[in-house]
Design a protein around this nucleic acid. Structure first.
Length: 878
DNA sequence: TCTGTCACGC
DNA sequence: GACGTACGTGACAGAG
């Protein structure tokens, strides 16, 4: 017969862990639920992983226990349970009742004692016991049929201790854990132990003598005079501490184990409670049917499916959904169209729509006002069908992003949920995800698409109002919306790639890589996977015995910083660095880019994400064309593969010089910095002069390098730690460096102080064009979170304004190219740089227009400077 | 399929 | 004094 499995959960301990591990969430009724939520995720994981036949959750009862009689100060000095946590205990009890899980508490005893007693009552031949807790004390219960899972980080991440693991971690038997506590004490429970004895000493003593009593009997044999004295002076305290740490295994428990049986299927009450608590994401873990049910819209919707378009009067204003299943809309088919307006609600199948000239001209009609979920996606999807979308007035994706960039999704179902509007199924519910993604039945599909359009139309006024209220409407209508169309055109246009050249580079790289690989294997004396940090670590730090510089949480760190420090220790290091460099080029750039080249046109079509980066920057995916190598020559050559799409054209690139620092000078109104830019001084040299208090001619290249790093740090909002890393100095030195910098530029210092104050007051910061970023953590008690928010407050207005500026330049640029009837096409944006392809005979004009537009995109108190260049490939436009 | 490590750009 | 430290995207290894 297989054994019965009993799970015993230390309720208080897990609730505490959950409370402190998770941010203070509350549900829509304003009730704090973070501890309940954490407790629930832990419980679900245990139920899934352990599949227990019996389960019980033990709680502490009352304030005093028998331990207080032994030692009045037991658990003294402990912080009171925060009320935000106390109020969650009843909910946890309710949760367990809903699951039909037994819970138990006993006057005068702690949860530990209940768990101890129950686990030791079980018969090893019949039972397997698993204890779940965050309290190391319970390790004393481990034996051949009792295992203890200790939470590590968070709540669901645990280490499960059996006899071997206790031995391995502590070198002790489980029953010696109490002896260890007796000697070292436990500050959280206010158990004194022997002052001056910590974990290391305690373990050493116990390994030698076995128990507290034996240690105390043989004090004269203990090595170390001081230690002897301490033990002698605290004999009684040690014995008492051991007693306090000892879990009672004979508590007068009335509950019978056979009443703690657990049936696998979660009752309906659980789903009810989850809904009440707002734990929607957990519902499908207990009942996937119920989850789908909860997700589905409740009200019916009526709409017309058009099998033919005889009349294109869908109203002068309409919500339009151009549905595309593929996340990458460049190669995805349109699944259908949804239109909702005052005229009615319609679904138009793709073939019907695309064959209708009437419908096409409706889409292209500038005077028909269209509200869309994602105008850029629609622009591109339609562009691939030869249709030029016009008349877009509203884009929900961008509206939602501007209102709060930190929301993780801005699709219609998500926005609808946030605004508390009509429910729309999530795309994932309808289409599935990953390998299971598929197009649903025609009915389900059309209904989903129409519902999205319906919901969109409903949310437009609310979003418009919010934009206005937050003074985001100008940014929205004058900048981001027009930009989305410009970006759509850039994406659809694509960049021509010299495939042959890339392939040749790939061949060369592969040859080189093979050679280096065998050299490395030879130097290591063994064949291994160089790309595996794990294997590489073993070779370097175990086989070759190189000094360990840094560890990661999974093993040895082998990153470039570490390898750089080991360079003169072994000749293999240099080879590895070279191997990494070439390997990166080959896999990410050569192979990666070749994978995404359109086979017919040999062009690459990236997608710019306009609603992701918290600062207002764009990002680029599939492929990322914003991180093509430039710093090292070998990598830079990749740019030779990016070429104009027409014969006798050139690549034309223009970039802002020091845009962030110029923005900083303006925003901070720092006189010195403004002057430096007005006089066209080299800003890094100027910084070095001020920070090091030297004249211009005394600035060494190293001083300039350091000054540059500080400027870089200011612009990116890095910490003293970050600066210390990039300069290879200590954190203290870096801190002092930043201090000196701020002394040198008092305007900047003033700005930094003011902006943090302002962020604390408003809860957000803004850029020059009013882009917002909320920083709720700026008032956090957690030093880390708060510091991070403070740096973000300083940095976002700078980086975000720079993003505003180039975006403005892009919209303006598109307009100018159109007005001047130039053939030149804008292709890419790389944060402070624009890349075009242009006919040779337009170069002269571009040399005037491009810098002009970019430098005057916005008016600030220092000049904006643009450098430009052109050539046969992107590489040559340097 | 997910997580961790590493590396590229700005 | 600890905490874990600019933002993005993507490749690969290794564990589940």
């Amino acid at each position: 017969m297989s054994k019965k499995k009993l799970v015993l959960i230390d309720g208080n301990s897990i609730a505490y862990r959950a409370f402190f591990a998770l941010p203070l969430l509350n549900n829509d009724k304003g009730v704090y639920t973070n501890a309940v939520y954490g407790f629930t995720t832990m419980l679900l994981k245990v139920l899934e992983d352990e599949a227990p036949s019996h389960i019980l959750v033990a709680f502490d009862a009352g304030k005093t226990t028998f331990r207080h009689k032994t030692y009045g100060e037991y658990k003294g000095g402990r912080q009171k349970t925060p009320p935000e946590l106390s109020e969650q205990f009843p909910l946890i009890r309710e949760l367990l009742d809903a699951f039909d899980i037994k819970r138990y508490e006993l006057e005068n005893y702690e949860a530990d004692d209940i768990i101890g007693t129950l686990s030791k009552q079980t018969d090893a031949s019949e039972w397997e016991v698993k204890v779940i807790t965050g309290d190391k004390d319970l390790l004393q219960l481990v034996d051949e049929h009792v295992k203890v899972s200790l939470t590590k980080k968070g709540i669901t991440d645990v280490d499960t201790y059996d006899l071997n693991l206790v031995e391995e971690r502590y070198g002790l038997k489980p029953e010696q854990i109490i002896d260890m506590k007796g000697l070292m004490g436990d500050s959280s429970d206010n158990i004194p132990g022997v002052p001056g004895v910590g974990e290391k000493t305690a373990i050493k003593l116990l390994k030698e003598f076995g128990t507290v009593e034996k240690v105390l009997e043989s004090i004269d044999q203990v090595s170390g005079k001081k230690l002897k004295e301490k033990l002698e002076d605290n004999k009684e305290q040690a014995e008492m501490s051991k007693k306090l740490a000892t879990i009672e295994v004979d508590a007068p428990i009335e509950i019978k184990l056979d009443t703690c049986g657990y049936k696998k299927d979660a009752p309906a009450k659980v789903v009810e409670l989850f809904k009440e608590l707002g734990f929607n994401s957990l519902i499908d873990r207990v009942d996937s049917e119920a989850a789908k049910e909860a997700e589905l819209p409740s009200e019916d919707i009526e709409y017309e499916v058009l099998s033919e378009i005889t009349d294109s009067d869908f109203g002068s204003e309409a919500a339009v959904v151009v549905e595309c299943l593929e996340e990458n809309y460049h190669n995805g088919d349109i699944l259908g169209f949804g239109i909702v307006s005052e005229k009615g609600k319609y679904f138009i199948p793709t073939d019907v729509a695309l064959q209708s000239e009437l419908f096409k001209s409706w889409l292209e009609d500038e005077t028909i006002i269209k509200y869309m979920p994602d105008a850029k996606q629609a622009t591109v999807s339609l562009a691939w069908e030869g249709i030029k979308l016009r008349g877009v007035r509203f884009d929900a994706l961008i509206a939602s992003y501007l209102l709060n960039p930190s929301d993780s999704s801005h699709d219609i179902p998500s926005i609808a949920t946030r605004l508390g509007l009509k429910r729309v199924s999530s795309n994932e519910t309808i289409y599935g995800k990953g390998a299971k993604q598929k197009v649903p039945s025609q009915d389900e599909l059309s209904e989903h698409i129409v519902r999205k359009a319906d919901s969109l139309l409903e949310m437009v006024p609310t979003l418009q109002e919010s934009l206005k209220k937050n003074e985001l409407d100008v940014l929205y209508y004058d900048l981001e919306m027009p930009l989305s169309i410009v970006l759509g055109e850039m994406e659809h246009q694509g960049v021509q790639v010299d495939v042959e050249r890339l392939e040749q580079m790939g061949k060369d790289l592969n040859e080189q890589l093979q050679k280096i690989e065998s050299k490395i294997h030879e130097l290591a004396g063994t064949a291994f996977n160089i790309n595996s940090p794990k294997q590489l670590g073993e070779v370097l730090f175990e086989k070759l015995q190189l000094p360990v510089i840094k560890k990661t949480k999974t093993g040895y760190s082998t990153n470039a910083d570490v390898l750089e420090k080991l360079k003169d220790k072994h000749e293999i290091i240099e080879e590895i660095l070279f191997y990494r460099q070439l390997g990166k080029l080959n896999s990410t750039y050569v192979e990666g880019l070749l994978k995404v080249v359109h086979r017919d046109t040999e062009k690459i079509h990236t997608r710019f994400n306009q609603a992701l980066a918290q600062t207002g920057r764009l990002s680029s995916i599939d492929p990322n064309l914003q991180n093509i190598p430039i710093r090292l020559e070998a990598g830079r050559k990749i740019r030779q593969a990016f070429i104009p799409s027409e014969k006798d054209w050139v690549m034309f690139a223009a970039d802002y010089s020091q845009i962030e620092l110029r923005v900083l000078a303006h925003i901070a109104q720092d006189d010195k910095m403004i002057e430096a830019f007005n006089n066209e001084e080299d800003v890094h040299t100027k910084t070095a002069m001020d920070v090091f208090h030297v004249g211009k001619d005394e600035v060494t290249s190293d001083m300039r390098r350091q000054a540059k790093a500080v400027n870089f740090g200011i612009v990116y909002g890095i910490s003293d730690y970050g600066l210390s890393q990039s300069l290879g100095i200590t954190r203290k030195e870096a801190g002092a460096f930043i201090e000196r910098y701020l002394e040198s530029f008092p305007g900047v210092k003033q700005y930094m102080d003011d902006i943090v104050q302002q962020a604390k007051q408003d809860g957000y910061v803004t850029t020059m064009l009013n882009r917002r970023r909320y920083l709720p953590e700026i008032t956090s008690r957690n030093f880390n979170l708060r510091s991070f928010a403070e740096r973000t407050a300083m940095n976002t207005p700078i980086q975000g304004t720079a993003a505003d500026i180039i975006k403005k330049a892009m919209v303006e640029m598109a307009k100018r190219l159109d007005q001047e009837k130039l053939q030149t096409r804008m292709l890419l944006q790389v944060h402070d740089e624009l890349i075009f392809e242009a006919p040779k005979d337009e170069i002269e004009k571009l040399e005037k227009i491009v810098p002009d537009v970019m430098e005057h995109a916005i008016q600030i108190d220092v000049p904006l400077k643009v450098d430009y260049s052109y050539g046969d490939t992107w590489y040559d436009s340097k």
